[in-house]
Nucleic acid binder design. Structure first.
Length: 414
RNA sequence: GCGAACGUAGCUCAGUUGGUUAGAGCGCCUGACUGUGACUCAGGAGGUCGGGGGUUCAAGACCCCUCGUUCGCCCCA
């Protein structure tokens, strides 16, 4: 077959799948609003620097996964691989320092040049939550709780586990990082090739290695808690206590490390085993240094992103679409009457399906296929008496209804 | 970026050790039923077997390349 195909790693969202996405996004949007997170949007592309500086030059996303291009003006642009950097840029660009805490919800397409798999695409969609300008642990708790509430509303909480860890403040993390590098350098000869690469890029990642040889070495590695200063460890304790208070179960995972440079303190992931290698459905953390990196005044922040495709695969069925009513004119005279009637009923708020062609049998079949609740037949018989035949397609019963009271009769039926 | 499996109709899949005009179910179209669906029956359309090259008298089957999907790694949502 040489039919035109979509670009690798991109997918069409046909109505059925789109409805599932809309369900995930709509549920998240509604829950976010209840938590006081207003929806916003930023451009789909930014100056490359926005992502490169914040996410870290050595991160996988920046070093090999960005869709970058040179604009006609000669500047380097990048299709956004995540939402956080763009929202923080917008926070600075619009001078929102006085609007803190700036609590927002956003959703839209993201782009990463990765090898596609199930639950991993080159264009995918995320829901995103950010709380900028709050240094309190209460913000961390609220943001995680919002994630949990959304998963709950989607009916996927049972399939997910909340993994949580702290990366400490910059001081703590740098001290720990130095200790780790020292330790692993001493064991360089027995580290896997992957971990040797990680040693320069992101040594904390070695802790999470799946390689058996690495794991043996990791057993003896320095422990993060020994390097956390009291502020960092007190902060984390407060976050965990807050989650417990809300009855949100978590699994303390001391090896949880995020791949992006900007994370500090709280790091978390809601993970599932139901999606193969792609376990994370919602993930995020605190990024106290990010705004400063972008050139803003030092401003703390915390947020997360959730994969809509991944959530849609796990979520309950989307609520059924509105069932239409099929309007079926019989004969040329009835055609014009039906057209006017359909227009009026639609303005009255009723979903009307009217086929463009076909005899009554075909139109009835089509009505059935569209899951219509009822069919209205209008022919010469009915026209002379100003009535129509209203057929209940579920019950299989029909009766005559005066055109004048059709609108209210349908309302009662639907 | 690394390793592996798979790719036959719109969809799900058959297709013997290479051997005539490549099949089924579902779906679609038409009719039985020119004013009545979800049932039934009868017909019909739809395939350059992902694409390109090679081996052979002969390739959907075998070989190479390529594109795509899936699984694992890496990484992430």
């Amino acid at each position: 077959m040489s039919l035109p195909q979509p670009v690798r790693g991109t997918h069409d969202l046909l109505p059925e799948e789109f409805a599932r996405h809309a369900h995930v996004q709509g549920t998240a949007r509604e829950m976010a609003a209840r938590f006081g997170y207003a929806e916003m949007a930023t451009p789909i592309f930014e100056f490359t620097e926005v992502f490169a500086r914040t996410m870290g030059e050595s991160s996988d996303v920046v070093s090999k996964e960005m869709y970058s291009f040179e604009s006609r003006s000669g500047e380097s642009m990048t299709l956004r691989p995540e939402y956080t950097a763009g929202i923080c840029r917008a926070f600075i660009s619009n001078g929102l320092q006085q609007n803190v805490p700036f609590k927002v919800f956003a959703a839209g397409p993201m782009f990463r040049y990765e090898r596609p798999q199930k639950g991993r695409q080159r264009q995918f969609h995320q829901i995103d939550v950010e709380c900028i300008g709050a240094a309190e642990a209460k913000a961390d708790i609220e943001v995680v709780a919002l994630g949990a509430a959304i998963l709950d509303a989607l009916g996927v909480m049972e399939k997910c586990t909340l993994e949580i860890n702290t990366l400490g403040d910059t001081e703590s993390r740098q001290a720990y990082r130095a200790a780790l590098v020292d330790y692993f350098n001493d064991h360089k000869s027995s580290l896997s090739q992957d971990s040797l690469d990680r040693l320069t890029r992101n040594p904390l990642r070695i802790l999470d290695s799946k390689d058996k040889g690495d794991r043996v070495i990791v057993e003896q590695a320095p422990i993060f808690t020994d390097y956390l200063n009291s502020y960092s460890s007190d902060f984390f304790d407060e976050v965990l206590e807050g989650l417990s208070l809300l009855g949100i179960e978590y699994h303390l995972n001391r090896r949880l490390v995020r791949g992006l440079d900007y994370y500090t303190h709280t790091a978390f992931e809601f993970v599932t085993t139901a999606l193969g290698a792609q376990g994370a459905v919602i993930a995020g953390g605190r990024y106290d240094g990010l705004i400063e990196t972008l050139g803003g005044k030092p401003t703390p922040g915390i947020g997360w992103a959730g994969g809509i495709e991944r959530l849609a695969m796990l979520a309950d069925e989307a609520p059924a679409a509105v069932r239409p009513v099929a309007l079926i004119p019989v004969g040329e005279e009835a055609d014009a009457v039906a057209a006017k009637l359909a227009h009026q009923l639609r303005k009255d708020g009723i979903s009307i399906e009217m086929a463009f062609k076909g005899n009554v049998g075909k139109r009835m079949k089509r009505a059935n296929k569209l899951n219509a609740r009822a069919a209205i037949l209008i022919g010469e018989d009915e026209l002379v008496r100003d009535v129509c035949t209203l057929r209940d397609l579920d019950q299989g019963e029909q009766s005559e209804v005066p055109l004048a009271s059709l609108s209210s009769a349908l309302r009662r039926l639907l």
